[in-house]
Design a protein around this nucleic acid. Structure first.
Lengths: 220, 220
DNA sequence: CATGCTAATGACCAGGTGGTCATTTGGAGA
DNA sequence: TCTCCAAATGACCACCTGGTCATTAGCATG
């Protein structure tokens, strides 16, 4: 008798299609209601399978969540790899612009996964929360740090920049921009929420301009 | 027979002290667990009063939440009034700095109220959510807009700034800064979380410098 | 057709929820 | 001291939760 792996082999042996159906439904359920309010009863009703099967596949609600969340992270990774590859060779500020669009594109094509991330960050009582958030921040902050360092080397950015502060600065802005696109009422009256691509584009240009030259009426 | 007001007169007639005790405990319960997972049973146990009383005071869980949240908003208003009054006459960028400190001060002295706000924004299924978030954003965005307009008039800011974009820019940064102070893992490795006042102060200075002059290696 | 074995099933369980209401309590007025 | 009535109480209700497990179904092999 050995300890159970999660997910169990019973789940792994399912057809790819059924596995995807189950995980997609789980992402929807968790993203809509958060961990604790998510209901296994509702989930299996939506799926048309028996409740016992879920526990045979994942052992517990926590196990189901774990597998579901890792499934989401895999999607994020794919997305980031793509954008990193695409914007090879362009300027720092264009890379930032591409990153914003990639973020919005992800939130658009995987709205439930993104909602789940938001809940995870701010709701505080998910299992394994700390571990997962750390994992995600390795992507985003490190990714931005690389961009900044490269930008400085290339002479596109001031060479005396405080890197930590700059990364935080960028991270805030980008993260919040995508949030405003998705969450509503977070756009401070700027009507970013669900705006057209064109509008978004001109908005991002404005922000990048502010980023580049600052707000102050400098003595240039 | 007329429709019940919430809170009922039974609650209103309580001593100020008991009212405060009840609302403080409710803020703690809701901020810790969110609306749906908050438990009336646990609340009354902590308070040492009977469950029936809560329903006599507020009619329902929703009624309790409404009164509790409005109690929090009142605290925010007080805080904003204070800081608005204090920083009369100082420069734009000093006002921004004061605002950051006021935000952190509020999150520090009313951690539960602030947590409740975060949950409200990102958890999506509170009652009256939309209404309340709108109400809150009237404060913050309008407040910042006033600062920006005044800054432009005084010649402290570029006079061709896009005001909407600038307000969004500032709102993102300030909001996120306070979040990073409270939430942990949101500081992109910048170690803002629960930092000392001194560290915070130097950090804010860095950020304001970025705000003022931008990131770009301009042709100044 | 019979056997054997795994996967699927859903009735059932203990425990927690918001909400109700008949009963008790406590203090003001006579 | 007795009366009265609003306020406080907590046992109780129907409902829902995650989780269990004896039973059934389905299918491959002999």
């Amino acid at each position: 008798m050995e300890t159970q792996k999660i997910p169990t082999k019973v789940f792994i042996n399912l057809t790819e299609d059924k596995k995807r159906r189950i995980l997609d439904a789980a992402v929807r359920e968790f993203s809509k209601h958060g961990f604790h309010r998510a209901s296994i009863n509702r989930l299996v009703k939506n799926l048309g399978i028996a409740k016992g099967s879920i526990f045979q596949y994942f052992g517990s609600k926590e196990g189901l969540f774990k597998v579901t969340f890792e499934y989401c992270i895999e999607q994020v990774k794919k997305s980031l790899r793509k954008i990193k590859h695409q914007s090879n060779g362009v300027s720092f500020f264009d890379k930032i612009k591409n990153t914003v669009f990639a973020g919005i594109e992800f939130a658009k094509s995987h709205p439930e996964a993104y909602q789940l991330y938001l809940k995870m960050v701010f709701q505080e009582d998910f299992p394994f929360r700390e571990m997962y958030i750390k994992q995600i921040h390795i992507f985003s902050a490190d990714y931005l740090r690389d961009l900044v360092v490269e930008g400085i080397e290339r002479g596109e950015l001031k060479k005396d920049l405080n890197i930590d502060a700059t990364v935080f600065f960028l991270d805030s802005l980008l993260d919040r921009f995508v949030q405003a696109y998705v969450v509503e009422f977070l756009d401070a009256g700027a009507e970013i929420h669900a705006a057209s691509n064109k509008k978004i584009s001109s908005y991002v240009d404005e922000l990048i301009n502010l980023l580049k030259t600052g707000l102050g009426a400098g003595e240039r």
